[in-house]
């Protein structure tokens, strides 16, 4: 089978019913899609197949023969980050980072498809992705900022509209 992965033509030897996740991780050594549940339940293995987000753990590799597969490695590099990647850094949307690859892939498809900065819409688009660290607020803020066309300073962290600052009486000393 032939795949184009991150713009590079690759020949796949794995048996046809092997999951795309296993092919990417174990045969092609592309490790950003994560085996969080291998049952389609967590979103950490999400990749783009011909531009559309897909669960690589649910996809038999034979079903994507000839397709173009994009993982987060193909969206930007440390020297040339995509806007979604910049937003995730600036808005502190990645914590442990394990769900981040799948979320960035799905968010890229959402924004690329003309998605708005409405957090309800973003939440629906990303509903299949679990993040156990952030509580999602920062993720929604990051994706909304990309959709709005914000620019990002990756050398600093954004303030959050959802932070509540409390002045503690008597704590000045």
């Amino acid at each position: 089978m032939e795949l184009t992965v991150n713009s590079v033509a690759r020949t796949v030897q794995s048996p046809p019913l092997t999951s795309l996740l296993t092919v990417l991780r174990e045969e092609l050594d592309i490790t950003s899609p994560k085996a969080g549940c291998e049952s389609g339940g967590c979103g950490a293995c999400t990749v783009l197949v011909d531009g559309q987000p897909r669960r690589s753990c649910l996809t038999a590799v034979c079903a994507v023969d000839g397709a173009e597969v994009t993982t987060v490695e193909g969206l930007g590099t440390p020297e040339d980050l995509s806007r979604v990647q910049q937003a995730f850094i600036h808005h502190y949307a990645a914590q442990c980072g394990f769900c981040t690859d799948g979320l960035i892939v799905a968010a890229t498809a959402y924004v690329g498809g003309g998605g708005s900065d409405d957090t309800g819409d973003i939440g629906e688009a990303l509903a299949g992705h679990y993040c156990r660290c952030t509580g999602y607020v920062k993720i929604l803020e990051a994706v909304a900022a990309v959709a709005r066309g914000d620019t990002f300073d990756t050398a600093s962290t954004a303030s959050s509209a959802n932070n509540t600052y409390v002045t503690i009486a008597g704590a000045e000393s």
Partner: peptide, 21 residues
Amino acid sequence: ARLPRYDGVGHVTGRTTYVDD
């Protein structure tokens, strides 16, 4: 101060090496 994440770039580019990687 609004410090950047020290491991942010690795996390968003798929370069962070977890044990399974």
